[in-house]
Design a protein around this nucleic acid. Structure first.
Lengths: 187, 187
DNA sequence: CCGATTTCTTGCCATTTGGCAAGAAAAACC
DNA sequence: GGTTTTTCTTGCCAAATGGCAAGAAATCGG
């Protein structure tokens, strides 16, 4: 639970987070390529990634897979859009490699918020953090070329190293063919 | 204050919001094309738009204006990215037409959160709402053509009707030249 | 280790979007 | 109302990205 503790402490460093940690009680292991969520399912929970990598994706109007988000060890995963909208799952959430997660149910989380306003502050700060990340990705999509966006990804640690290029391509908003050509250009 | 009340009630319908309303005490009027914020300024506040329209923009590496966001009557405005990151302003925030706003200072807002956990819940729900909006715009940028994105905008009420096309173009992530051609195509 | 499957690259050509510059149209200003 | 400034459109051509299909390369699964 050490990783979960330091994750939570990032948002509410002053608070005792033991009760909150305790509410992430359901543990699941997922084999590579299996699904944590599919569209239409109940997705009123958040999961903390203890091990592995996930991707969030859907099929667009033409039946093409679009990867919306990735999540690695030490981060949260789930269908956050649907979670915040309080709707059924919109996306697929799939393990990109063998993974292990701890889950907190949405109702349980609300109870934690109600019992301790410091946890409510966690909810707020986490949502703000999500806003920041999504805004920055949005800006990148709005203003940068596919090649620039790809270089941006590579600038990060080695996060992308086990991710198939076709997932990365759709995350960048381009086809795998185009990404392949961009890679050729760069090298 | 009626509009502000119903805005706040959208997020915390059960709560008495009078104290929170009271904290939006500073009122400002801005003439068309004047700035509420410029990069580097202190932007630790939120403003509620009582009248008028705003846009958030910056200059990219090539010195081209990029419109990031719009805000209309009944919504909040400010440099939300910098506000959440607790940094100095990153963007310009400009009145697109004569406008009037009510401002709440960030520190004051924190005091409200501290004094009443129900207001903290407002902070959380609003950040979640922002996440939803930004995610949806991000998805649109990632998966749709410029023409589809433009039609999407038009599908809304008459929101865009006083906005110069060049601002809309940069909001869509294209040049004004391209938008002009798209418009020709459509009609 | 080997066959089956998935992923990645490449060629050819189409479509979308951009850059620049000139002129038309609209809006702002006095 | 007329002048100035800003915004919008268009033509010409370039660059970026896509679609399809074939084959190469890598990975998977026993």
């Amino acid at each position: 639970m050490e990783k979960l503790r330091s994750f939570l402490k990032k948002y509410i460093p002053q608070s005792d987070v033991e009760d909150l940690i305790g509410s992430f009680h359901k543990v699941r292991k997922l084999k590579k390529r299996t699904y944590l969520l599919k569209p239409g399912q109940d997705c009123s929970f958040l999961a903390f990634v203890k091990k592995g990598t996930f991707r969030v994706f859907f099929y667009d109007g033409e039946g093409t897979e679009v990867t919306v988000w990735f999540s690695w060890e030490g981060m949260m995963i789930g269908d956050l859009l649907a979670f915040y909208k309080q709707s059924r799952a919109i996306f697929y959430v799939q393990a990109v490699e063998d993974a292990e997660i701890s889950i907190v149910n949405g109702k349980e989380l609300e109870r934690q918020y109600a019992s301790n306003p410091e946890y409510l502050e966690f909810g707020r700060r986490y949502a703000e953090h999500v806003s920041i990340n999504v805004m920055e990705r949005m800006l990148s999509l709005q203003t940068k070329s596919a090649e620039e966006r790809y270089l941006e990804l590579l600038a990060n640690p080695g996060y992308m190293k086990n991710i198939p290029l076709k997932y990365i391509a759709s995350y960048l908003g381009i086809t795998d063919t185009s990404l392949s050509r961009i890679r050729k250009n760069i090298s």
